[in-house]
Design a binder for these strands. Structure first.
Ligand SMILES: NC(=O)c1ccc[n+]([C@@H]2O[C@H](COP(=O)([O-])OP(=O)(O)OC[C@H]3O[C@@H](n4cnc5c(N)ncnc54)[C@H](O)[C@@H]3O)[C@@H](O)[C@H]2O)c1
Ligand SMILES: NC(=O)c1ccc[n+]([C@@H]2O[C@H](COP(=O)([O-])OP(=O)(O)OC[C@H]3O[C@@H](n4cnc5c(N)ncnc54)[C@H](O)[C@@H]3O)[C@@H](O)[C@H]2O)c1
Lengths: 212, 212
DNA sequence: TAACTTTTGTGTACACTTTCACAAAAATAG
DNA sequence: CTATTTTTGTGAAAGTGTACACAAAAGTTA
């Protein structure tokens, strides 16, 4: 689709810029320079301009960027100019926290369906309005029918690869994984890992060595 | 303590190697080459050797690495040869999930104290055996007394910086932050961000552009 | 219209990370 | 004891991302 390789960090910074721009818009700021934006989100101004340059020219020399315009451009670039339905697999402790999190809506995401291999009262209660709970055996059918492309995996690590294989078969293209295992997926499917164990251990290293 | 600059990615890979080594030990594997370990955890063998080389020589040429020894060496290097007490701030949806997570123990971490500005029955019930719940106003006193160095922040984003300032004053040196804000901390304090909004948006970009 | 100011967009240099490739070391076989 | 095999540890090359620095563009002032 695009001719060259855009680094993944660039994309995550775009997301960061987007958040800053939303804040600026709420504050009533209409125009911002890369220098000011950089200060606000802790990124080098040249880096911001380089990141944007992957996608085109969005600023006005001598002026800066129009907050509203840049925000809309970034949303379009990232595919965030529409709502995305998300599937959640695993309505355990973590899954329930995710279901009750209101912040996703603000980003344009909606967990519209949840799956678990156990369906009990506790889990039914955890599922909010506008989200349906199904038994894990229904995964492929439901996801396929709803054409959902993004899923969150919050099952025990021993089940994660099995679940992911099923998700991929169902047409899922992006997976946010909380289980502490490296998952294998075919080309064309993106996985991002949230690994709290590793995060805590990295912190420990730096705290322990008392440097920096 | 050590002369150099070790990249943060190296540290997170060490943590990954550690996890693989634990699995290998359970499987009864006694010796492993960088090639095999690399295949197991999806890292280039030369990378593994380079990562280890920051800290010394751990292998035997022509043989490989003794699983048990390397595991112990890595634990020592990362400061994981002892238990770490962790403080949790914010016993909301996410905080409760973290409190009930059994996986931290396996890594040698223990959430031994939790704080919230609201203390009610629901929150009291969420706190397991071996963990104490205090009002947020007690934070500095309790953390100082217990000499806790690592904290997890799971409060609303509007409170996060305030909480972090208090944590730093209490002697906390490492912070795992779930609130969607860039935190400012003095030198000597390490912060790692878990930002689910950004993670989902990055996924969306790749899914949306249908490339990789 | 011309001089001046501001800030972008980008070529280039720099820094950091990963991978390659091979000598050195250790074990094993003859 | 020497040759052979294996696999580490590491210098150098390749690759990738970041930051600098400045010409080009747009606006502003006179
Ligand atoms: N809870 C946390 O704070 C936390 C922190 C870090 C990592 N994690 C990881 O997140 C994952 C979930 O953690 P948790 O604490 O919610 O665990 P949990 O045991 O409370 O919940 C897991 C849920 O997944 C369901 N499940 C299991 N296999 C399934 C399958 N094949 N299909 C559908 N549903 C299935 C279970 O019925 C259960 O409801 C684990 O991999 C864990 O390591 C959790
Ligand atoms: N729940 C999720 O799945 C999820 C996902 C992504 C990010 N987050 C982020 O994690 C944070 C917590 O999310 P949540 O869903 O648990 O929110 P929540 O509102 O359920 O819980 C927040 C808790 O923090 C407490 N709190 C607020 N200010 C405090 C203070 N100054 N000192 C001590 N305690 C205080 C509140 O009383 C409440 O119990 C938020 O910043 C949120 O953006 C949560």
């Amino acid at each position: 689709m695009r001719k060259w390789k855009i680094p993944e960090v660039t994309i995550s910074r775009l997301s960061l810029y987007l958040r800053c721009l939303s804040e600026l818009e709420e504050e009533g700021v209409e125009v911002i320079s890369s220098a000011e934006l950089g200060k606000k989100c802790g990124i080098n101004p040249a880096q911001i301009r380089k990141d944007l340059a992957y996608f085109g020219e969005f600023g006005t020399r001598g002026v800066g960027y129009y907050v509203k315009d840049l925000k809309e451009d970034l949303k379009r670039i990232m595919g965030l100019d529409r709502e995305w339905e998300v599937a959640l697999v695993g309505v355990g402790n973590l899954g329930r926290a995710l279901l009750s999190y209101q912040g996703f809506k603000r980003h344009g995401f909606k967990i519209s369906v949840a799956f678990d291999k156990v369906i009990d009262e506790e889990r039914k209660k955890a599922v909010p309005e506008g989200c349906e709970l199904y038994h894990a055996s229904m995964m492929e059918e439901v996801i396929r029918k709803k054409k959902i492309k993004i899923a969150i995996v919050a099952v025990h690590f021993s089940e994660a690869q099995r679940v992911v294989d099923a998700l991929v078969k169902s047409g899922i293209k992006g997976i946010l994984n909380f289980a502490p295992v490296r998952l294998s997926v075919p080309k064309g499917v993106v996985v991002r890992h949230i690994d709290l164990g590793i995060e805590l251990e990295v912190l420990t290293f730096f705290v322990n060595t008392k440097m920096y």
